[in-house]
Design a protein around this nucleic acid. Structure first.
Length: 297
DNA sequence: TTAGGGTTACAG
DNA sequence: CTGTAACCCTAA
C-alpha cells in the first residue's frame, strides 16, 4: 500500500551498470558502498541491485536462438514516489549504428539514450591514464616516444582534432610532475609509479576484502569525474569512458597475467594471483560491453 | 551478504 | 489472461 512499485530509472540503471563494470558482478554491497554510486542508488538495497541485474540479464540475455526483442520500450511512467522523471526516452538519439550484441552471456546492457548536448567540451581529463597505459602496453624496454604513444592511442581509441597538441602538453605535464621520465626522446614510467613494481602479488590481491579497487591506479580523483559522466553523459564523455574502461581492462589483464606468472615462478601466492586474474578477467568481460559505446562517437 | 525461488503488481 | 518488473523470503 505504502509502496506500490518503484520502477528503476535510467540513471539508476546506468549507475548499476557502471558499478558492475567497475567492481564486477556480485559485490552489490560494494557497489552500494561507493559514495558516488550510493548517491544514485541510495534508495535501493543490495537485494534490489541483484534483482534488477537479474531482470536485465533475463530480459536481454535470454535470447539467442529465437529473437525476443522486447526491451527498449517505455510505457507510461507512473512512479508514485520520488523518481521524478522529466526527460523521457526519445529515439531521436544517435542510435544509427546499433551494433550486434557482442556476447551471449547475461550482460544485457543496451546503449543508454545518450544526452544530445552541445559538443566540444572538456573531452580530455583522463588522457594521463591513457598515456601511462599506452606506455605500459607497448612494453618498450627503453621507453616509448611520443609518436608511438600517439599511434597507439589513436589506433585503439578516439581521434580528437587537436589530439597531437593535447598529447604534447600532457606529456610535458607528466614529466614535470615526475610521473614520467623523459630519456632521449622517449618516455618511461617513473620509478615511483605504482605500476608493476614487481612486488608481491598480495598488493594486487588486496581487493578481495578491501572495497577499493586496485585494478586501475588512478592518479587523481578521477573516479569522481567518471561518476559525473554517469549523471550527464555526453558523447565525448561516454566515448572517453568506454575507451578508458577498455584500456584499463586490458592493462589490468596484462598485469594480472604478469603477476600470476611471477607468482608461479616463485611458488608463492600463486593461488592469490590466479584468483586475481580470474577477477580481472571477469571484469574485462563486463567491460567489453562498453566498447560498443565507442561506435557512438 | 548473496543467489535463487516464489509472490505481487501492473501493462498489454 | 499472460508476460514482465519489482518485491519478498530463505538457504548457503
Amino acid at each position: 500500500m505504502g509502496a506500490p512499485k518503484q520502477r528503476w530509472t535510467p540513471e539508476e540503471e546506468a549507475a548499476l551498470k557502471a558499478g558492475v563494470a567497475k567492481h564486477g558482478p556480485g559485490k552489490w554491497r560494494t557497489i552500494l558502498r561507493d559514495p558516488e554510486f550510493s548517491a544514485l542508488l541510495r534508495l535501493r538495497s543490495n537485494v534490489d541491485l541483484k534483482d534488477k541485474w537479474r531482470n536485465l540479464s533475463v530480459t536481454a540475455g535470454g535470447y539467442g536462438s529465437r529473437e525476443k526483442a522486447r526491451m527498449a520500450l517505455k510505457k507510461g511512467r507512473r512512479v508514485p514516489k520520488v523518481t521524478a522523471e522529466p526527460m523521457d526516452v526519445d529515439a531521436n538519439d544517435m542510435d544509427d549504428d546499433h551494433n550486434a550484441i557482442i556476447d551471449a552471456k547475461p550482460l544485457a546492457m543496451a546503449v543508454e539514450p545518450l544526452q544530445l548536448e552541445s559538443s566540444s567540451e572538456k573531452s580530455v581529463a583522463r588522457l594521463d591514464d591513457l598515456i601511462l597505459e599506452a606506455i605500459k602496453k607497448l612494453k618498450e624496454p627503453s621507453g616509448s616516444n611520443k609518436t608511438a604513444i600517439a599511434a597507439y592511442i589513436e589506433e585503439q581509441y578516439w581521434p580528437p582534432a587537436d589530439f597531437q597538441r593535447l598529447l604534447s602538453t600532457k606529456l610535458k605535464a607528466l614529466v614535470s610532475s615526475e610521473k614520467l621520465m623523459k630519456v632521449n626522446q622517449k618516455y618511461r614510467i617513473a620509478p615511483s609509479s605504482p605500476s608493476l613494481g614487481g612486488k608481491s602479488t598480495k598488493v594486487y590481491y588486496s581487493e578481495e576484502m578491501n572495497g577499493e579497487n586496485n585494478v586501475k591506479q588512478l592518479t587523481k580523483p578521477q573516479v569522481d569525474a567518471e561518476l559525473e559522466k554517469m549523471k550527464g553523459m555526453t558523447k565525448e564523455e561516454a566515448a572517453a569512458f568506454a575507451a578508458k574502461a577498455v584500456a584499463e581492462a586490458e592493462v589490468a589483464i596484462a598485469e594480472a597475467e604478469e603477476a600470476a606468472r611471477v607468482a608461479e615462478a616463485a611458488e608463492t601466492d600463486a593461488e592469490a594471483a590466479k584468483a586475481f586474474l580470474e577477477t580481472v578477467t571477469s571484469t574485462m568481460k563486463n567491460r567489453n560491453a562498453a566498447s560498443m559505446m565507442l561506435r557512438a562517437c
